[in-house]
Design a protein around this nucleic acid. Structure first.
Lengths: 123, 123
DNA sequence: TTCTCTGTATCATCCGATTAATACAATAAT
DNA sequence: ATTATTGTATTAATCGGATGATACAGAGAA
């Protein structure tokens, strides 16, 4: 079971929304997959069902999931939308990294160099 | 005058804290520079003086600014600390970019490629 | 039909962040 | 000595997010 590790520095429902998006665009959830019930997901993430529900509503507003009333909720089968969402997500992270570093006075080649020499932490 | 553009998705005082840090480590504020009074800064950022004060207290806790009672607040002259803070700040952004992209299934060379081909938006 | 599971809706309550309005103490400037 | 400006402290009120408890409606399963 995938951990949720939610922090308290931002609204919980926002973090859940992002985590769900990540799970969809990364392929952890496949198109058409049935999601656990809101109550179960809430228990899993250790949040109130209302909070999970709020995140789901937003996810649905973006068409990344759809509901079959009284049956459950499913991941969209619109692979085009998923691909597009992934593209946007990646682009926003590239931009964020670039902008933050630029504000600090780093040149692009330095940004690339730092990333290249980055080694993941082990433990 | 540097804009503050504060969002409502995270605590204001946290955002102010980060913005101040950026201004210090990027050199926008120089060591020893005198800051505007809390009330003025608050007015400039369009927030309550108490909120600005809270951010300043935290900034001071990290020794990035110091106070001369009844005279004002100044940027630290500990250039070593500033350099170290900048290093940490950059490292955390590198890690963040790397981890987010990795979770989405991107390989490091793809991350580098996306960054290389990133072109800043004009308008 | 009856039971159970689904999403959904509606309360009241709590908590932290923010705002607001003041007040105070210390010092530099006048 | 007086005034203005500084950071700081205090108290109350407000607001949004999160929780908790509960209820309802619809569809599938028994």
């Amino acid at each position: 079971m995938m951990p949720w590790d939610l922090k308290s520095d931002r609204p919980i429902y926002t973090q859940i929304l992002e985590e769900m998006k990540k799970r969809i665009i990364s392929g952890y959830y496949q198109p058409g997959d049935k999601l656990l019930a809101v109550r179960e997901l809430a228990q899993e993430a250790k949040v109130n069902p209302n909070t999970m529900q709020k995140a789901m509503m937003e996810l649905e507003r973006e068409n990344l999931v759809f509901t079959v009333r009284t049956t459950g909720r499913y991941i969209t089968e619109d692979t085009e939308l998923i691909a597009e969402t992934k593209k946007e997500f990646a682009a926003s992270h590239v931009e964020n990294y670039y902008m933050q570093m630029k504000d600090l006075g780093f040149a692009k080649n330095e940004m690339i160099e730092l990333l290249s020499s980055y080694e993941e932490e082990k433990e």
